[in-house]
Amino acid sequence: MRVVRSPGPAAASAWPRLSGSRGVGARRRPAMSEAYFPVGPGLGPEENFLSLEDILMSQEKLPGRVEAALPRLAAVLGKGAGAGQSDGIPEGSKVEIPLWLAKGLYDNKRRILSVELPKIYKEGWRTVFSADANVVDLHKMGPFYYGFGSQLQNFDNPENPEIAQTILQTFIGRFRRIMDSSQNAYNEDTSALVARLDELERALFRAGQKGLNDFQCWEKGQASQITASSLVQNYRKRKFTDMDG
C-alpha cells in the first residue's frame, strides 16, 4: 500500500518520505527575529510534508476515470446523495479526485484509476507556454502550477517528459519579469503585479520585495531605529486576546 496523508498513525509512517524531499534544496536557516518560518514546497514527485503550500496543493482536483468499482467512496468525492441507492462509485465513471487521494489509489499493476491531464498541462496549453509564458494568468489556471505539475510525475503518463520540460521553461521565461517587478516596485501597490503569479512565484516576489524594502529602509536611516522584535509583539498580542476571552 501507499502512504496517504491522514491524521493518526499514518502520519507518523509518512515521516520517512521527508528524507527524500529534504535532500533537495536545504532550507535556509530561519532568521532569529521571525516567529514563524515557512517551509517551502517540495517541487518534485514527492511533496514536502511540512509545507503548508504543498498541503493546500494536494487538495487540488485531478480529472480521472475509475477503472474498478470503488465501494463507499461516493461521499468522499461528493457524489453521495444524487447517485441514488449505492454509496459506491461504479466502474468507468468520470471523477475529479483530489491529488492526495489519486496518489493513494493510483497503482500501475492494479489499475484502480486512470488519471488524465488537467487541461493546462495538455499539449494545447503547452504550445501557449512555449510561445510566451508571460501572458498566462497562472494564478487563475493554477494556482499551484509548478508544484502540481511536478506531482504529475507520479502518474505514468507518456507526456511526462514534455510536461517537466514545459514547466521548467515556463519558470525560466517568467523569471525576468518577476525579478524586475519585485526589485523595482517600491512603495506602490503590488496587487496588480502579483495577480497573475502562481503561488510559488508569489513567494519569490515577496523575497525580492523584502530585499528591496530592507535596503531602502536602511538607506533612509530607518534601520538604525530599534524596534521591538516580532516575537515579542506577537507575544503581547496573544496575551491580550487571552485576557479578553
Binding site: V24, G25, G40, G42, L43, G44, P45, Y146, S150, Q153, N160, P161, A164, Q165, I167, L168, F171, I172, F175, L200, L204
Partner: peptide, 12 residues
C-alpha cells in the same frame, strides 16, 4: 533552488 528542483524532474 526552484529551478534546480524543476530540472531534477526532467530525469525521472
Amino acid at each position: 533552488d526552484h529551478m534546480y528542483k524543476l530540472r531534477t524532474n526532467l530525469q525521472p
